[in-house]
Design a binder for these strands. Structure first.
Length: 253
DNA sequence: GTTGAGCGTT
């Protein structure tokens, strides 16, 4: 749903999408329009919203008609405080095939930093030396997971969306050997249940001493369920069934 | 009523 494109979103190939991050969850396209429109011709503004709550996800897409204007907006609006929140503006990628678009149309000045450190990162400015380290490996990931958890929890089918997102992460950890086929876990799990401090001998003694249920102490001799033949395993039933066949079942005539 | 380091639909 485009704020301005009632008949539909304008062709992306003719527009340059900017990703506006860190905006407040209450910021709307109308709030961003005047800000971005001042720096260039805004073709369309779109703010993804939660399908359930309909709330803003905290970021928006602003489409400019010209790249230079978009670039200018990025440079000017990046780090701008909107609604009491510092927003981040950077070139956006549209879908998994955005790379082609970037190469064909949008020419990112810094594809590596994605405009993150292009000039001045508001967060970097701050004295996050000590916090940066801690949040960079745990806090950030966990926080993301938590926020995303909302969507994945109710809309588990959207896990694809999250999965794709994770894919973008540096493949450094991936090379660590994240084989879904051979997960090393479960090891402690079973070990834990067996971690009881009782030896096999103890088990035997316990069973005898306990003697809680007579049935359990002599299951081999007197099984609780007398060898009642299951209907399906019993061949007789089969014959019976065959006997019931209409063909055989037609004594008359 | 809230969170947050993230990429979109008619």
């Amino acid at each position: 749903m485009s704020r301005f494109g009632r008949s539909g979103p304008p062709p992306i190939r003719d527009t340059y999408s900017l990703l506006v991050l860190n905006i407040t969850f209450r910021t709307t396209a109308d709030d961003l329009f005047p800000l971005f429109d001042k720096y260039g011709e805004v073709v369309d503004i779109y703010i993804p919203r939660d399908r359930r709550t309909g709330d803003s996800r905290g970021f928006a897409f602003v489409r400019y008609k010209y790249e230079d204007e978009a670039q200018k907006a990025v440079d000017r609006l990046d780090g701008r405080v909107v609604d009491g929140r510092e927003i981040m503006v950077q070139f956006a990628k549209y879908g998994p095939n955005a790379e082609r678009i970037n190469k064909g149309r949008i020419v990112e000045p810094l594809p590596r930093s994605r405009g993150r450190s292009r000039s001045h990162s508001p967060r970097r400015w701050y004295r996050d030396d000590y916090r940066d380290d801690y949040r960079d490996r745990d806090y950030r990931r966990r926080s993301r997971s938590r926020s995303r958890d909302r969507y994945s929890r109710d809309s588990y089918r959207e896990r694809d969306y999250r999965h794709r997102s994770r894919s973008r992460s540096p493949d450094g950890y991936k090379k660590h050997g994240r084989d879904s086929l051979s997960p090393p876990r479960r090891s402690p799990s079973r070990s834990r249940s067996r971690s009881r401090s009782y030896s096999p001998d103890d088990n035997k003694r316990r069973g005898r001493d306990s003697s809680a249920s007579p049935a359990s102490r002599s299951p081999s001799r007197t099984p609780p369920c007398k060898t009642s033949p299951s209907p399906e395993r019993s061949p007789v039933r089969r014959e019976h069934n065959d006997d019931r066949s209409p063909r055989s079942r037609s004594p008359s005539t």
